[in-house]
Design a protein around this nucleic acid. Sequence first.
DNA 1: CGGGTTCGCGCC
DNA 2: AAAGGGCGCGAACCCG
Length: 562
Amino acid sequence: MAPRIAVVPAPHGPGGRLQPLGEDGVPLGPPEQVADLAAAMAQREAAGRPRWVWAAADSAYAPLLPLRVARCHDLRLVEALLLGHEGAWGEPRSLGAAWARLRGLPVPADLPETGGAGGEEQDSLFAPDRLQLPPGTDQLTAVVAVHAEQLRRIALVEQPGLFRLLVAAESAGALLATEITYDGLPWRTDRHDRLLTDLLGPRPHIPGTQPKLLAELSVELQQALGSRPFNPDSHAQVLKAFADQGIRLSSTRVWELREIDHPAARLMIRYKELSRIHAAHGWAWQDAWARGGRFRPEYVVGGVVSGRWASRGGGALQIPRILRGAVVADPGWALVVADAAQLEPRVLAALSGDAGLARSAAEGDLYDALAASAFQGDRDKAKLGLLGAMYGQTSGDIGPLLATLRRKYPTAMGYVEAAARTGEEGGIVRSRLGRTCPPPSADWLDLTEAPETAGEAGGRSARARGRFTRNFVIQASGADWALALLASLRRRLTALSTGPDRPHLVFFQHDEVMVHTPVNLADQVVEAVAEAGEEARRLVFGDTPVRFPLSTAVVDCYADAK
DNA sequence: CGGGTTCGCGCC
DNA sequence: AAAGGGCGCGAACCCG
């Protein structure tokens, strides 16, 4: 049984080609043509769980679902990780681009990503020409060659062992993202409707017209300001309407409105809350994204430079709390919702090796422990100070808090400050597993000049880049941990059951996961989550006293999880 | 008219 | 001086 198998789907129809590879990427035999690719892969999967090597999950895996495979090597994602590590950020990462670099051919630019709005025109997404291979190039040949080259390059990075883990975890993320979109998040449109109706009034019969309560609020607002009708969605008109009452606003932000003691300010805030729900997650959203009892957004693995996932369409990573009542398990099923408690400060403790901070992160609530040992028990101060340190905050009253942290946790504070300094000086930083931040770009102006001569703008942009690299090491290492958690949890869920009623992940948001599971397996899923968290800690951070506890709830409805 | 930008909010 | 990092998205607005 080959440990790795290169796979290329046929451009049309269910067939494809396979070629067995050794651990070094060298072919163990000739290519094989199969008439039913999904069946052939399922058979080999059962025989020994190979690592499938393909150009990209959306072209090679998505069309084969509901097939499930355990492992893959996603050439496009790995190419991006390698290019970043090699200082070639922004170079095209398609199979065709990697092939062209390998062969000294002109490198094709990456095609713009196209959103999968609702699912039409998906065929063009899977077409081989999206891989950007030169005409006449054999795709399997390119897959095999680019893979072997990637294995060679991986061996050359600073810490190949950790980077291999990153490669495996990122690739597992690609499997999972494809599967989550396929399975969908359970979404009860009847509950969604009720929530909307309670807030906004009944669904308007004519699409595009304002719901009743929103329209009434708009009129009340105009009356409170004694003004002519104006559009509350227009910043300029709102500012003018308030100005006519002698209320000068520099913006229409909620925090600024909150400081105004006037009935119109309260109405304006309420209008903003409701109109946002209507615009972002109202009936139009439901029609586009949550049909058939499932919400199926498209996730973009590695879509954030820090390694966090991004999403395309439907605002998958911004489901407002108020709508979580619409996420309900199917009858006989449950939702297991788990989120990592205080992930980023724990990451800082583990990364920096600060003994004092690690003690606070060894068990229980990190901020409580921090408060007890450095802030006279004031948890708010402890939290504010530590978050400020990780984000590079300088404003407000947190100066004294930072000073306290610097005194009590010099190693941890030194770690983030060194990362900030590196960024300010134009350098690059990496996550624990080796994900690399982008180099300074035009966004940060010219950082090659000495700070004294770069002028005010140069100094400001250098500090902005410092805040970015300061936060990058933590956010990206947190993403490392979360990806390892996902990969481990996915494997453990597969071990619980592979039948049609298997537990499956339905949501992932930075430090939170949700599993939809038959009720009778819920306890085992809870256990699997805890084990996955511990495995991720061990793999990513090794020997550290820091713990990464997950708070887990078994619920019928997402709204009941916290 | 379509495309790009700004604002301001949702999530972590 | 309401100068903390990362995102996606919709409406208004601006421009050609």
